[in-house]
Amino acid sequence: MAAIETERLSRRFKGGLTAVDAIDLSVEAGEVYGFLGPNGAGKTTTVRMLVTLLRPTGGRAMVAGHDVARDPDAVRRRIGVALQEAALDGLMTGRELVELQATLHGIAPSAVRTRGQDLLERVGLVEAQDRRVATYSGGMKRRLDLALALIHEPAVLFLDEPTTGLDPVSRMTLWEEVRRLKDRGTTVFLTTQYLEEADRLADRLGIISQGRIVAEGTPAALKAEIGHPHLELAFAGDAPDLDAAATVMAAFGPPEVLRELEKVRVPLPDGAASIAAVVRALDEKGLGVAALELVEPTLDDVFAAKTGRHLEGA
């Protein structure tokens, strides 16, 4: 069963702006789904509809087996949401916040304490738990926010730009936690503006632009759709015969001679697997390879091709 499934999901605001325009999404249970889009593309509006904060004006969305519009409470019981600004109450301590969240989610009073401690330990905030949240660093706040989202062991977790503005170490910690959650079988719906994050974490990606899904698939498939990996070769000797090399390499794909760089480039659909064959063929003709590089298309290339824009922070 799909953990998230939308059918022509739409949101039209008063004043006529259609922020989300009949999108179809399907996220399998246990999958990490990366949701990318430039600012104003409809990313946040989509997430707000999926987590029951905003009612769709058209189409429907099923999350964790329930309709977000018809049975929002059933959805709320099964989802966890880490909000973009990590909206926390600075006057409360970390422990108080976690225990408040547990109570709000109907966890029995006898279990509130232990549940809270488990989570604080998991996100590494045990030492800081009795300090007011206002004194926390940005990374600590995000980790606390994640703990709050996990308090009721949700089946589907929504992370809205979880690492925006975080230092690299905090970002790594958060990535590890997302992987751990995936290992436990939690479905993760992740919006991000960092392509590296999407590339590393997501099993599949959706790219939204102007309220419509413009691309969907695994990171590898999306990149392959844009172009194949290329092999770039440099040769031994002062004046290597680039044209001779190109002739040899034509057997693998249409070669391209880069004269200024003294390199020859050839597309390699199978990636690294066929590097050895290319090198061997050149060697047989007496063309010694001095350096080689396999150039993969990046998600940024995909993004630019699909939306006409580059992501900030990529």
Binding site: R77, M92, L104, H105, G106, P154, A155
Partner: peptide
């Protein structure tokens, strides 16, 4: 795998009211 998917009991609701009221008092 989820532990808390049951609907709220009346005492659960009361606990929510008390918890939110307590948070409101922090301001003071």
């Amino acid at each position: 795998m989820s532990t808390a998917v049951t609907a709220l009991t009346a005492s659960g609701r009361l606990r929510i009211v008390v918890a939110l009221a307590r948070r409101g008092l922090n301001e003071v």
